[in-house]
């Protein structure tokens, strides 16, 4: 069992995955610019590269939820569920606006920062689990 607190492990994990995200993003963009003829599985692999550390950051967050005490877990899960619901609603609503009202098209990778922005909002609203 690790001696580091759940908060410390979370900070280390998030810093690592965000650092990896920045590196993967630059590597992906530079590779795609240097090799515009890239195609097939190689293109897919390079294009999806920045998403992998994002998956890692979600794993770090889920591990944090498992490590904290029951009160912090209850509050964090409530915020997570509210943010997930709001993100699903916002994305669905925007999809209909795009389809039926000519609203601007946004790339799906923006769903991740939108989720965390809404998680921030949920954290301000829900200070306890009750």
């Amino acid at each position: 069992m690790s001696r580091l607190s759940a908060n410390t492990q979370y900070l280390i994990g998030i810093s690592t995955t965000m650092g990896a995200y920045a590196a993967a993003l630059f590597a992906s963009i530079l590779t795609l610019k240097a090799h515009p003829d890239l195609a097939g599985p190689a293109l897919w692999a390079v294009a999806v590269l920045p998403a992998l550390p994002i998956g890692g950051s979600i794993w770090v967050f889920l591990r944090y939820i498992e490590q904290v005490d029951e009160y912090v877990r209850a509050v964090t899960l409530k915020r997570f569920i509210v943010a997930t619901g709001l993100t699903l609603f916002a994305c669905t609503a925007w999809g209909f606006l795009e389809e039926n009202a000519g609203a601007h098209h946004f790339s799906l990778y923006l769903v991740y920062p939108v989720f965390w922005a809404l998680y921030g909002g949920a954290s301000a609203l829900y200070r306890s689990a009750t």
């Binding site: 005490d69 029951e70 009160y71 912090v72 689990a129 009750t130």
Partner: peptide, 16 residues
């Protein structure tokens, strides 16, 4: 073996 936040929440009826 819990956080101080948890104790505060218990004492103020914010956590069962």
């Amino acid at each position: 073996g819990v956080s101080r936040q948890a104790v505060i929440a218990l004492e103020t009826d914010k956590h069962i």
